[in-house]
Design a protein around this nucleic acid. Structure first.
Length: 478
RNA sequence: GGCUCGGUAGCAAAGUGGUCAUGCAACGGUUUGCAAAGCCGUUCACGCUGGUUCGACUCCAGCCCGAGCCUCCA
């Protein structure tokens, strides 16, 4: 039984797919005006993890994650770059896919782009007007009439009066109520526009997700996710739109991931604490380190991004890979478990408790180490290795060849390392092997001074040696 | 002001009414030519104040501190 915290009720509830055995989930993807930042990465990794786990449990999953490709920021950036908006968007969609592949995020079943769903949005807006939930304002914009939708505010726990009391909402005479939001923006010179019954224009942001999710998943599906900041107003508005137009039930469970903060503050450009995923990936040993970090705390809580925490994640992940080193990939049956699989499932079934699931992996690594020390590559060791690799795979890591992972290092320019240590001179694998061969000769001659000198050189280059029985020296990069 | 969510050992981070999280770091042991890695062991906790209880970090109340949302935002 999989229990998930539902933002709509504030409680955990059992996942019971509307269509038995088939989970349909939607998450609000990103707006492709730039490379996405590590906060976006958290949301993308979290919902990838959710979809992976549900699949792992044997459920059929249809995961839809949209791409917002029509938006003020895109239009502005495109203008600055002197290209058409869709050209700008296409560039960052390609970049997004590159970064997502590195992060180990599987492609969702569908990745609808807002600009391909204009017809569906117009149909929905028309239906909202018919149903009395929307009106065209004097300036030509079509607005949602918040008053007409009684449950408005349920998701975010807000009341219309309270929202107004907050009153940071700017006065807009085109609106009947300050909280009314735009469904269709009338065209402005130089902006993309599509014809509509209310004049040429482009869609408001909120209607995009209502149109795409219902078109792809129907009016009643299982999970709708996104970042905590989308809870209000975006998701609130989506509910108002979809339910207003279809009178359907829309999403059963709403999931929201917490923020990724920098120095305990939300990332923002004004504070200058803004990191793109791309630049972070360039600084770390392996992309899985970032994924591991993002899953090392529970998805709903806030988490803090810092180089030292990335280093801790690297160390923890390295420990897992060390346990798997020189263990070939056995095709063993994951489900004939040592018990860890059950513990892992119990953790994940409880609202996707990835930190606890990772603790299970660490326990498995310890058992594997102990077993290998005692009995070498025994049947049990193979079982443990297979299980560790398999369960890690459910979370989307431990997919790399251990030797390759351990010998990888941050790409050039990044060895300034999190702690500000000076950049280290790099050595190719072949150079390292040559040095080790030379050291082995020195060791055979019991020339410890020379042996240690060579090791010091390698250490300075970020290479750690491990002498094994039988004159074998394993190595890895730190 | 309204509405949320947090405060766990040096750093991160789970969890529970009554022996254990887990990882990193530190210390000791084992091992090693010396290391590294592994294993074993040790140190270091549950914001404050009351209450309930045989017993609370875990439940309740109050308080303090921090963050977020109420405006585009993962």
């Amino acid at each position: 039984m999989i229990r998930i915290h539902n933002s709509l009720t504030g409680e955990k509830q059992e996942l019971k797919p509307v269509e038995p055995g088939h989970v349909r989930m939607y998450s609000c993807g990103i707006t492709v005006y730039d490379y996405f930042h590590v906060g976006n990465a958290r949301m993308l990794v979290v919902f990838d993890m959710v979809s992976r786990y549900l699949r792992h449990r044997g459920l059929r999953v249809t995961y839809v994650r949209n791409i917002t490709d029509v938006d003020d920021k895109i239009i502005n950036r495109a203008r600055e770059s002197g290209v058409e908006w869709h050209v700008h968007a296409a560039k960052y969609i390609a970049a997004m896919h590159e970064d997502l592949d590195k992060l180990g995020c599987m492609r969702p079943e569908r990745e609808p782009k807002a600009s391909d769903y204009i017809a569906e949005m117009l149909a929905m807006i028309g239906q909202l007007i018919t149903n009395g939930y929307a009106y065209q304002a004097p300036n030509g914009d079509v607005m949602y009439d918040v008053h007409k939708f009684a449950p408005y505010g349920k998701l975010s726990g807000k009341k219309l009066d309270d929202l107004r009391a907050g009153s940071r909402v700017e006065v807009d005479t085109a609106k009947r109520d300050p909280l009314d939001f735009v469904l269709w923006k009338s065209a402005k010179p130089g902006e993309p526009a599509w014809p509509s019954p209310w004049g040429a224009g482009r869609p408001g942001w909120h209607i995009e997700c209502s149109a795409m999710s219902t078109k792809e998943l129907g009016e009643h599906f299982d999970i709708h996710g996104g970042g905590l900041d989308l809870k209000f107003p975006h998701h609130e508005n989506e509910i108002a739109q979809t339910c207003g137009a279809t009178h359907g039930r829309f999403a059963e469970i709403w999931m929201h991931n917490g923020f990724l903060n920098i120095d305990n503050e939300k990332m923002s450009k004004s504070l200058g604490n803004f990191f793109t995923t791309r630049e972070v990936l360039a600084k770390i040993k392996h992309p899985e380190v970032l994924r591991f970090f993002l899953l090392s705390s529970h998805y709903r809580g806030p988490m803090n991004y810092s180089p030292s925490q990335l280093e801790q994640s690297e160390a923890a992940l390295t420990r897992l890979y060390m346990a798997l080193r020189d263990m070939p990939s056995y095709g063993g049956d994951l489900y004939t478990s040592t018990g860890a699989t059950g513990e892992f499932a119990a953790a994940m079934n409880d609202d996707f408790n990835t930190p606890e699931a990772i603790a299970v992996l660490q326990g498995l690594a310890r058992e594997l180490n102990t077993e290998r020390t005692a009995n070498g590559e025994s049947a049990r060791a193979k079982q443990l290795a297979s299980e560790l690799r398999g369960l890690g795979g459910v979370l989307g890591f431990l997919g790399e060849d251990p030797g390759k992972f351990l010998r990888s290092s941050a790409s050039a320019g990044a060895s300034e390392a999190a702690d500000g240590a000076p950049k280290l001179p790099g050595l190719s694998d072949a150079e390292v092997d040559a040095q080790i061969a030379a050291r082995l000769d020195a060791r055979k001659a019991k020339n410890w001074a020379e042996s240690d000198r060579i090791r010091d050189v390698l250490t300075a280059a970020g290479v750690i040696l491990e002498d094994k029985p039988g004159g074998i020296t394993a190595w890895r990069r730190r």
